[in-house]
Design a protein around this nucleic acid. Sequence first.
DNA 1: CGGCGCTACGTCCGTC
DNA 2: GACGGACGTAGCGCCG
Lengths: 88, 88, 88, 88
Amino acid sequence: MAEDTGGVTADRLRSFVERLENLEEEKRATQEQIKEVFAEAKGEGYDVKILKEVIRLRKQDRDERDEHGSLLDLYMNAIEGAPEAQAA
Amino acid sequence: MAEDTGGVTADRLRSFVERLENLEEEKRATQEQIKEVFAEAKGEGYDVKILKEVIRLRKQDRDERDEHGSLLDLYMNAIEGAPEAQAA
Amino acid sequence: MAEDTGGVTADRLRSFVERLENLEEEKRATQEQIKEVFAEAKGEGYDVKILKEVIRLRKQDRDERDEHGSLLDLYMNAIEGAPEAQAA
Amino acid sequence: MAEDTGGVTADRLRSFVERLENLEEEKRATQEQIKEVFAEAKGEGYDVKILKEVIRLRKQDRDERDEHGSLLDLYMNAIEGAPEAQAA
DNA sequence: CGGCGCTACGTCCGTC
DNA sequence: GACGGACGTAGCGCCG
């Protein structure tokens, strides 16, 4: 029988599929909680759309800082940091 | 004093934002794990694209069993079946 | 004069850019027509999402017939089949 | 038979599917030509990546001009246009 | 149910 | 020829 590590493969495959399906369920549940929090906020009079934008902007900021990251830091440090290093 | 629930509101707002950001981080992390599992499967020689399709199909099956008896089948049959021979 | 195929090069370049821009416009227009057909179908009560899936599946079938004899089936069978009973 | 406008529907459906498949084929073919032009350009020593960026930028420009539209044009014209207005 | 923003997917390109 | 990365496109879910 040519392809007959099939048994093992099938188990392995099933294992992957199950893990993935569980993780996706987890993700789905988290998403559900997010919805609930937004609903709660909305119930207290907050504007969901704005709230989302706030979060989005904060994320953007974080990402940008990460991106420029070390380069920016490098420059910033070069300028502010370096107490006596501007020899020329 | 007109706008003076301001302090409370700000705290409340901050609370919402934090909860939401934590949940989104959670979600992001789960997504990350999913990627890792796919990578692991790939490392063992499985075809990720097919794997994804398997999961997608299984999900679809589950959903269909819950709800509607597959418009998809209806459409597929309508097309593939009986080229010209429709009774009225 | 060192760089003096410049005139020719510029023309050639412009030619490429124009051809490409025309082709992209063509593509864009075709995409537009596709959207319109979907809209028309929708207007007659067809479910666009399902319709897209039908087309996707038909394409997949064609591709599979051309090439590989469906890894998908293999995987699906491996998972759904024989829960514990793999012979070695 | 409950759902038996099926014949007509099936034809209509098949018609939509065929039109869509034809359009997608058209689109695919155009995409193919695009690739060929890039290949040709590359064969003559042009840098494909840069070429793409040029086209992308030109598109961006066009889009932006369309967006801001007349206002930008107005200003641009006011500045660049005015053949003899720079008296000083 | 129509629009919008986000996420995911397929494609293409350069690298090893 | 496989891999990973970048890009643009398509699908999905949320909202009003």
